[in-house]
């Protein structure tokens, strides 16, 4: 029988340090708000040097803002159980009576909070600094796409966290290798359609690919021709991805936890 009250407390308890911790270290606001703008500005000037229409600078700013979520999923969701293992917390989680999914859900909620500050401020400041005009065609669709993307993306992070559970230093490199390649194939800085149908289709396994594509179509009116799929189709696929990833996370977590117990690798540090 599922103890919903206990699991809800676990969700809040795990989200708490991520939210409160961010307020206790105000300097992270500087690092998270202003520093990402430097890299985004470099790509914006690059597009200017190429003579690109200003809407492409808007694409860069939107993609740059969304990198925050991808980085958070990679380093603070997928790799989190590895960090917990290194610091010695993992066995405490496993001994506690709540569902492991509650812990992951709490990590996701807390992560979404402080990552949203970085993403939204980057987006707002980027658009302001470079004077990019936006025209949102459907605010409701935009909100639906945004939250569905986060839901599916963090579901993917939850699934990865179980796969990362047993690995050592390889986790660090695995997350590292998922950065630039995903920036590229998911079209963070240009419309993913440019990569061709099959690459775009394969890249759509990562929810942020379709999420970004839909957001580009909804935020920059008139750019629908640059979209990979119609927004309505992308919404349906994002729903499917969210369901698959969250269910997959549950299955993978049980499997890897049992495997880790059998092989005695759950408390192994400094591998």
């Amino acid at each position: 029988m599922i103890d919903w009250r206990l699991n809800l407390r676990a969700v809040i308890g795990r989200a708490y340090p991520r939210v409160i911790g961010s307020f206790r270290e105000p300097s992270w606001l500087f690092f998270d708000i202003f520093l990402p703008l430097l890299g985004i500005a470099a790509f914006a000037f690059y597009y200017q040097a190429l003579g690109a229409p200003s809407v492409f600078i808007g694409f860069v700013i939107l993609g740059g803002a969304m990198t925050a979520y991808w980085l958070n999923v990679l380093w603070s969701m997928a790799a989190q159980f590895y960090w917990e293992k290194e610091v010695g917390n993992l066995q405490l989680y496993l001994m506690a009576p709540m569902s492991r999914m509650s812990v992951l859900a709490g990590m996701a909620l807390g992560g979404i909070f402080f990552t949203s500050v970085r993403a939204l401020s980057t987006l707002a400041l980027g658009l302001l600094i470079f004077g990019i005009e936006i025209e949102i065609t459907s605010p409701i669709s935009l909100l639906v796409v945004f939250f569905l993307t986060l839901f599916a993306l963090y579901g993917m992070g939850m699934m990865f966290s179980s796969l990362y559970l047993l690995y050592g230093r390889g986790v660090w490199h695995l997350s590292s290798v998922f950065q630039e390649p995903i920036y590229f194939v998911s079209g963070f800085y240009f419309p993913v359609k440019a990569l061709g149908f099959w690459v775009s289709l394969l890249a759509s396994i990562v929810p942020i690919t379709l999420g970004l594509d839909a957001m580009r179509q909804l935020i920059f009116a008139g750019q629908e021709t640059m979209g990979f799929l119609p927004v309505s189709v992308e919404i349906v696929v994002l729903i499917l991805l969210a369901v698959v990833f969250i269910y997959g996370a549950r299955v993978a977590l049980n499997f890897m936890e049992n495997l880790g117990k059998r092989e005695g690798r759950l408390t192994l540090r400094w591998q």
Partner: peptide, 8 residues
Amino acid sequence: VFMYLIIL
């Protein structure tokens, strides 16, 4: 490279 190729 792709940013370049998309524009030029």
